[in-house]
């Protein structure tokens, strides 16, 4: 890392660990923090710590939340018979933005990927299965990403759900192939949701 005061270097070294941030960017950001007013810098530091102190995974749906259960799980105007499974918290945000889905969610916190050492144990599958047992859930929508890993995850879950006699649908491939759910625009996503197919 760059030559300079140790505190600057330490900040740059922390930043470089963030996804999408290279060495150069980290150095630039660290220098930018140096130029901030003390209030701004404190606000940034507190915001970072707050995320860690205040948020946790919802004990029901495993989404990131400040209150447990999260606002969506606590909202009883939502359709309790419909459950949508996604990979990441960002997918919930994307789907909520469409305003089309009235059920609840389950966030797996990833997708199967042996190459990255991610098996079923690394995902929130146990939580998901215990949610299904003895519940009023009538339909599970598998909205994992339309790529190889998302598809494998959907296939894996399907095998687990089938014996329970719950209807399983897979989000239709209205989404550009190979892209992540997160990036799909709202129109395509809404269309994909309408067109979900029974599997």
């Amino acid at each position: 890392m760059m030559l300079g005061p140790p505190s600057l270097t330490r900040l740059a070294e922390c930043l470089v660990r963030l996804p999408g941030i290279g060495k150069k960017t980290a150095e630039r950001l660290a220098l930018y923090v140096f130029k901030m007013s003390e209030e701004e810098a404190t606000a940034l530091a507190e915001a970072v710590v707050d995320v860690k102190r205040r948020t946790r995974l919802c004990s029901v749906c495993c989404n990131v939340t400040e209150e447990d259960p999260c606002p969506i799980c606590a909202d009883d105007t939502r359709d309790a018979s419909l459950l949508c499974v996604v990979e990441q918290p960002g997918d919930v945000i994307a789907l909520e933005r469409t305003g089309q889905f009235k059920g609840r969610y389950h966030v797996l916190q990833g997708a199967l990927s042996p190459l990255d050492g991610v098996g079923p144990e690394q995902l929130r599958v146990t939580e998901f299965m215990s949610r299904l047992k003895g519940s009023e859930i009538a339909e599970v929508v598998l909205a994992t990403n339309p790529n190889v890993e998302g598809e494998a995850t959907a296939l894996y879950l399907m095998k687990l759900i089938k014996p329970l006699g719950i209807m399983v649908t897979r989000i239709a491939r209205g989404i550009p192939v190979g892209s992540d759910l997160d990036f799909a625009d709202e129109v395509t996503l809404a269309r994909a949701l309408e067109g979900r197919q029974k599997v």
Binding site: P114, G119, Y156
Partner: peptide
């Protein structure tokens, strides 16, 4: 078997 199945299918 469950670990291979989703990959086999695809």
């Amino acid at each position: 078997a469950e670990s291979l199945e989703p990959w086999d299918e695809q």
